[in-house]
Amino acid sequence: MKRNNIAIFDYGAGNLFSLKAALERNGAESVSILRKLNDLGGFTGVVLPGVGNFDPAIRSVEPFKESLLQAMEDAINGGVPMLGICLGMEMLFNKSEEGTLDGLKILDGEVVMLSKKVKIPHMGWNNLSITNSDSKLLRGVSNGSWVYFVHSYFVKPTDKNIVAANSVYGSVIPALVEDGNLFGTQFHPEKSGAVGGIMIKNFLKECTQCS
């Protein structure tokens, strides 16, 4: 099997150490934390982490936007897998109520604030309701599994077919989107105990299998 070299992008906004540790615990041979994204050659997978705020994060990828968008297109078409976690997933969409800047617009849809009926942020363990039984990330994950969420906004994809799992908090919230090898989780797999570990292993497996 191919050696797994994973890149984590650093928006300069927080905890990447535990994500790196989670990837290493689950079998990644090397994990690099990058401040620049212009050269992704040599990496078998890319992770956009989930700590920070929408506008600063978008600003931080602005200088590498072209190569990042190309890498995302490739991922959708079965190329090197990418995983956006929480904010890293929200950035894939057109825009967010958290900020004023445009999102990366690689997935169509908007990011909106959670229902005012419930406490915000949605912080804690919630159940997954799996809607796509063929999901690559959810192989071996049971319906109803608990995963850890920390977020105030959620994505509303135009194409509902990319949603692989939902959760309920104030309303139905897409918890996992999957389009080819482009994955986005609203929850934090690296913080979701053993269940999260299964998903990270699944992601790493996809990383070793594509060219």
Partner: peptide
């Protein structure tokens, strides 16, 4: 802290 790291932190 909120504006840089996000409210959840």
């Amino acid at each position: 802290l909120m504006s840089i790291f996000g409210r959840q932190c």
